[in-house]
């Protein structure tokens, strides 16, 4: 019975963590956050020992792979442990004998991937229902997880576009021209920063996708434009346009301050 209790606890934890991360649009679950932060820290540490930023390119991919392993792995182990709690939970279809431990592990993985039951059958009506529930769970986890990852890549692309947009705007020598360029594109810039801010809240993992070059890195470009904004507002340059932009930047700083720095 101990296996059943462990299985129930594990399944509740992974289901909460998964659905909070993927569906709530309010950030990531506790374990997902811990995994993401831990891997990102490893990459940042390796970056301090490296000559260039190439290693950081793999941070986002590593986090996504680790999260898939955590979500699907925990679901698989949870199902496997629940099968272990009953000796006759899984039967060999041809010999009608109870399946050994390794075959229960195979059966649970086979069911979760919705491939079928792999020459084994559930041992009772209760386990038949449980098997159907787990098969649906595997299907839901895989499809919803993939949809989430597509949204994340779209948010990462937006992050890079924003960085590039700012870098392009500031690609003039004169400070006055830079301010004028920001004023001319104030609305678009504000919308892009706001969208990135919302992406940050919905998909915190986007913070750990790093760019190798400075032009497409958001942090240095945002720091540059913020300094420009602060100086321009001190000199009372077109505050009607710059104040909303400054406010949008404040919202972003508020989001990042609470979560990442």
């Amino acid at each position: 019975e101990i296996y059943l209790y462990i299985a129930i606890c594990l399944l509740i934890i992974v289901a909460y963590d998964f659905f909070f991360t993927v569906i709530s649009i309010n950030g990531a679950g506790l374990i997902t956050s811990m995994i993401s932060k831990g891997i990102a820290r490893c990459f940042l540490w390796m970056n301090t020992k490296a000559v260039n930023r190439t290693i950081l390119r793999f941070s986002g991919v590593a986090i996504i792979l680790a999260l898939i392993c955590w979500w699907l792995g925990a679901l698989w182990i949870g199902f496997f442990l629940s099968l272990l709690s009953d000796h006759t939970a899984v039967m060999d279809a041809s010999s009608a004998t109870a399946a050994p431990t390794i075959d229960k592990f195979y059966f649970s993985g086979y069911m979760l991937s919705t491939l079928g039951n792999g020459d084994f059958v559930p041992g009772s009506s209760g386990w038949k229902v449980m098997t159907a529930i787990f098969s649906f769970s595997g299907f839901i986890f895989i499809t919803t997880g993939m949809t989430y990852l597509i949204s994340v890549s779209s948010a990462v692309l937006h992050k890079r576009s924003l960085a590039l947009f700012i870098a392009n705007l500031l690609y003039v020598k004169d400070e006055g021209d830079k301010v004028q360029a920001v004023i001319r594109n104030g609305d678009q810039l504000r919308n892009m920063i706001n969208k990135h801010n919302q992406n940050h809240l919905a998909y915190p993992i986007v913070h750990y996708f790093y760019s190798t070059d400075e032009t497409t890195s958001l942090a240095p470009n945002l720091a540059r434009i913020d300094q420009l904004l602060v100086d321009a507002l001190k000199n009372n340059v077109d505050s009607n346009t710059l104040h909303p932009l400054y406010h949008s930047m404040n919202s972003y700083l508020h989001t990042v301050n609470g979560t990442f720095v």
Partner: peptide, 18 residues
């Protein structure tokens, strides 16, 4: 000031401190 310190932290969290 606080704003500068915040951006310093953001740059650090983006791997730009080394």
């Amino acid at each position: 000031d606080i704003r500068k310190a915040l951006f310093k932290d953001i740059l650090k969290s983006d791997g730009w401190d080394s």
